[in-house]
Design a protein around this nucleic acid. Structure first.
Lengths: 217, 217
DNA sequence: TTAAAAAGTTAGGTTAGTCTAACTTTTATA
DNA sequence: TATAAAAGTTAGACTAACCTAACTTTTTAA
């Protein structure tokens, strides 16, 4: 049985590699994502290596092993099912679900998750548009285009949003950028990397950092 | 914010005092209930004392303070609401709910509990017949008679069952002893403390330990 | 009423997860 | 291609929650 902390490290590795289409990650970026110091991440990586959950050699890059990936994807499945439950059944808004799901994702009970899945009607995406891994551990990695890379003056559909920060999501919501919204990048300003958008017909000006968190098709 | 462990100590103190109609508890019984050594409980009691959650002096008896009680009752409320959710919405049987609720009771989110309460229709008892504290922190302590103290040859109604052990609950279920069942103590055998019962008309022979876990009215 | 038993505490040790400060290895670039 | 910057590691320390072994205080009962 893995601790909550170990599960969080594995989950972070999947976010940094598989979900970005990359094959490995570095100690510093892992530490940063988890909000710990690199030295702390090094210690944990040694432990995860002895448990055969990551492949890793000193000063090298980190890859997740097949058992490590399997476990991480289960945690991600739980996280996204709980987010969906909170949103669909308990009247949570999309900016409120993440924080509570971070706690709920570590509850250990196979039956709980199977039944939750059934109660929700076997959903395939969470409230932010992120795919929910199947009970067999399959995680759909759709090649995602962020608003920062999307073609200019073309209408796109908002497919998903990074869920990590409540404040960000409230802002996203405020400018009318919901899942399914029609969105167009009118122009990019090189001097400050800002993006001029049209969301469902309404103009908005956002930063590059904002644009990188919005996934479109 | 209290750790899961601190919450478990406070909860155990309420189980040992308020729910039994007693005003204080001892280090050893507390340690035993929590499955730790007395030395460990002593350490934690010192910590809870500095946080003003218990009243306590060296070699003395432990009482819970008003803030400590308030917090403990919130945890008990969460535990029993989660048990009810698992039983009512997720097809768990009454012997399966306790273990998972032990994990879920520590999730921190006021909104989560308020919404769960609403989803369940503001229940007043959990699947084992235990009262669910109100959102204001009121815990009904019904004076409870166990089967071991119940009058002989009188028909009683099963009002509740101690929920701690899944195996016990499965056995309780098997002999037909559900909440609301009619139960009569035919005879008690002094030489081995066994109890001869009649449950909904069917005979059964049970131990004293069994009889102490069944609450009747 | 005192001695043994029960209850409770203290001291010192362990593990998990974190930190800082100093160090080493790798990489990128002048 | 040498060296500075970036990336990563090591050593030593801290806290929370647990342990065992030895000790002290309180209670019980002969």
């Amino acid at each position: 049985m893995l601790s909550n902390t170990e599960e969080n490290y594995l989950k972070a590795l999947v976010h940094l590699t598989i979900e970005k289409g990359l094959k490995d990650a570095g100690t510093n970026e892992l530490a940063q994502l988890l909000g710990v110091k690199p030295a702390t991440a090094t210690d944990m990586l040694k432990k995860l290596k002895t448990k055969k959950l990551v492949d890793y050699k000193k000063y090298g890059r980190i890859t997740i092993t097949s058992p490590g990936r399997k476990h991480a994807i289960e945690v991600i499945r739980k996280h996204r099912l709980w987010e969906t439950f909170l949103f669909e059944k308990l009247h949570f808004s999309w900016d409120e679900v993440h924080e509570v799901a971070e706690q709920l994702e570590h509850i250990q009970s196979k039956k709980l998750i199977d039944e939750l899945d059934r109660l929700l009607g076997f959903p395939s995406v969470d409230p932010h548009g992120e795919p929910i891994p199947s009970s067999k551990g399959e995680l759909k990695v759709k090649p995602r285009i962020t608003l920062a890379e999307a073609a200019l003056k073309t209408t796109h559909i908002v497919m998903g949003v990074n869920d990590d920060h409540a404040e960000f999501l409230q802002y996203v919501d405020k400018v009318g950028c919901k899942i399914g919204a029609k969105i167009k990048v009118i122009q990019r300003h090189a001097f400050d990397d800002s993006h001029e958008l049209e969301i469902n017909g309404k103009k908005a000006l956002v930063t590059a950092k904002f644009a990188q968190q919005i996934f479109v098709a």
